[in-house]
Design a protein around this nucleic acid. Structure first.
Lengths: 194, 194
DNA sequence: CGCGTTTCTTAGCTTTTGTTATCGTCGGGA
DNA sequence: TCCCGACGATAACAAAAGCTAAGAAACGCG
């Protein structure tokens, strides 16, 4: 099965072949070299991409030019400047390939039109937004409820081993909301007590 | 105009009177006394409420029984255990009235059925989730990018004066992810330098 | 009006984090 | 093979936050 169709059906199991064809023609492959950007702050890039292979990071530039990585993308996840798509504004964020990456890309405008023309896609849009809202909300709650050390332990305990296995530690530190030095100390503390 | 209809039309301007009638019959008023809960952790309460008057807080219970407030609701905002509605699970969170409050309530099951039966409501569900996702995402980003003092300054600079004017400071501290004592020090620092 | 609760500030002390810098290791590229 | 850059651990110091406690001010309620 086409990987994007499989992705859509995870959210809308009833999506028919005919409905899929409404989007299929707009999909094009895309390759990113390691270090290459999918979108940079200031650009407007109203495109949605399914990551087939490799991984990417989402980061912001702080005043002074310092980078802060807040999210990671792995195989079979969507990546996009979602806020930029919804608001029609330039991106605030940067998405960059951490490894070579293969994508399937389509214009947000196509999906937006399908929202009007086909209820199955409107449903997809709803369920997708709901799904991401749950994830973002859980992560915000974790930030507000847990200390840095507790957040690191929670990451250890959670199923997200891909982050710890495949992402450089100083980026994981950003993701947890601490400095790389601090995460190194936390790791030493946690390791010591076992 | 009925306040809930006005709310729906902020997200779906084309909603017709006939479509509104599909939901209108399921809506009932609800009153909360100061301190009373709309939902408590452990309960399942698959209901959506529009807050007409008063304000409420959303908080979690940490191990040990300590409360951590992470969100505030004001007039003309929806409140619900959204995750519990979507997942059909008991609530992880608590929503409590900080003042006397007037609500309009309807069952999530009704909205869920309208998703299937009426495209206008499916659209409402999508746009609502997208809107909340943008807000939650912005707040998560703020947590990851800004220091506590920067977050307080950002709250001062943002339009959310209602939070600072109408919410006790120790709850605002929770909302910003710091202790009440620490927020008091931050305020002293910020005030000193002007 | 008076009393008690809530709210906020301040202080002293401890713990953690941020900052800067150094060092060792690893890996890719010339 | 050599060199340079990226990555991570560690140390020393400064800054900030957490914790506990005490006191002042504001508020609600009887």
């Amino acid at each position: 099965m086409h990987p994007l169709l499989a992705y859509l059906r995870r959210f809308v199991p009833t999506l028919t072949e005919a409905e899929w064809q409404l989007l299929a023609g707009a999909v094009r492959p895309c390759h990113l070299a390691r270090g290459q950007h999918f979108v940079r702050a200031g650009e407007h890039r109203p495109e949605i991409a399914l990551l087939l292979r490799g991984n990417c990071r989402l980061y912001y530039l702080r005043p002074g030019g310092e980078e802060r990585t807040t999210y990671f993308f792995f195989e079979n996840h969507l990546l996009a400047d979602y806020a930029g798509c919804l608001l029609g504004q330039p991106s605030q964020l940067n998405i960059q390939a951490l490894t070579e990456a293969e994508l399937l890309v389509f214009d947000y405008a196509v999906l937006r039109r399908l929202y009007d023309e086909c209820p199955a896609y409107e449903r997809f849009g709803r369920v997708l937004a709901e799904y991401h809202l749950l994830g973002t909300d859980a992560r915000l709650t974790e930030q507000l409820l847990l200390s840095p050390e507790e957040r690191y332990r929670a990451l250890l305990a959670s199923g997200k081993t891909k982050i710890l296995e495949r992402i450089p530690q100083h980026l994981v530190a950003n993701y947890l909301g601490v400095t790389p030095v601090s995460l190194s100390r936390i790791r030493a503390r946690v390791a010591r007590e076992r």
